[in-house]
Design a protein around this nucleic acid. Structure first.
Lengths: 192, 192
DNA sequence: TTGCTTGTCTAGCGATGCTAGGATCGAGTC
DNA sequence: GACTCGATCCTAGCATCGCTAGACAAGCAA
């Protein structure tokens, strides 16, 4: 029995190694550079080993996305829990979100730009993704305003943040004015 | 002289054919299906002909993006010019924008999701892109509110629309509530 | 030690973006 | 009207991609 347990531990460890290496490589050189050959070489195994853990590259991206969702939820909660007052919470939430996206562009891509084969806004959405949305909802629901559904408000606010994050990173928006954009967004969208 | 003119006409026509075919193929089967081989086959020329018009696939995407930007600007202007009152204009602008993105997903991707090798928010940004932003600014600048820079306001509003467009299309947001999201966005962001 | 399962690797498939070099065609000259 | 020559286009190929089949080795139970 112990032999099998050891093998399972080793296997789980290798799977974490694959995901961590993919993420690292993607952050260093972009997702285009994450080829199955390069990834296999970095983990010091041959290509087919990857396919014994994941169905394909898509699933690897999906695994990175799940990891990122959990981290983003934690980052948002850490920022908002240290702030007092609904208004302040929303501001630091927005900053934390955009900061995460800027600091982890490849992970953010895995979550929202690339196809990781994950279900969204669905009953079989993976838990980390649901929880990521929940983390936003906790602070944003407070400032939705009377008669506005908190979930709907969160969706709109989130979409605005997502737009700012992606357009800034794709150089469609100049990065200098980010803080002023956040202020304007919070000023207008948050009630009180 | 007339011979050369005829050749140039034919060349220009073929270039339009390439762009139109790439766009059509992308809308039908997605950009992944737009391979240089398939594209060459559809225009009934060999692959290298594509490279006598464009540096590579990226530039073809860029050409589709420019075409799309002009169309989107026209669509936005057509919608807003038929509306009276700043508030109504902003509402129809938002609907026109999201409608364009939903009806031309591949073109929208070429403009904002894929790398078409185009410069943005820069002095050497191609004219159609500048004009697309200008079309938004014309209506959105009116409702920026006192003391708020119209350009900055337009950027934020645009980012929100972009977020809604991309997250909806990527199934990150359920499509049913789009209209309610637009109403909320306009209600909060537009002053008056 | 022997036999068998489990795991890993080598080698290869079809497809991708892109390019070199040869073939062909047509415009201009005698 | 035949010929030259440059522009134009195609065939064939390169390196690389995601993914897989089948050979091989390592480690377990008997």
């Amino acid at each position: 029995m112990s032999v099998q347990e050891r093998k399972e531990r080793e296997r789980a460890g290798r799977e974490r190694l694959i995901v961590a290496t993919a993420r690292e490589l993607a952050e260093q050189q972009g997702w285009d550079a994450v080829t199955t050959r390069r990834l296999a070489e970095r983990i010091e195994y041959s290509q087919p080993v990857l396919y014994s853990h994941f169905r394909g590259k898509r699933e690897i991206i999906g695994a990175v996305a799940l990891e990122g969702a959990a981290e983003m939820a934690a980052a948002v909660r850490a920022a908002t829990s240290a702030a007092d007052g609904p208004r302040t919470r929303v501001t630091v939430l927005a900053r934390a979100y955009l900061d995460f996206a800027a600091r982890n562009p490849a992970v953010y891509d895995a979550m929202f730009q690339l196809d990781g084969g994950l279900a969204f806004a669905d009953e079989d959405t993976p838990e980390p993704l649901k929880d990521g949305f929940a983390a936003l909802l906790e602070s944003l629901g407070e400032v939705a305003g009377d008669g506005v559904h908190p979930g709907l408000f969160t969706e709109v606010f989130w979409a605005a943040l997502h737009g700012l994050a992606t357009l800034t990173r794709a150089r469609r928006l100049p990065p200098e004015d980010t803080e002023r954009r956040v202020e304007l967004l919070v000023d207008r969208l948050a009630m009180i």
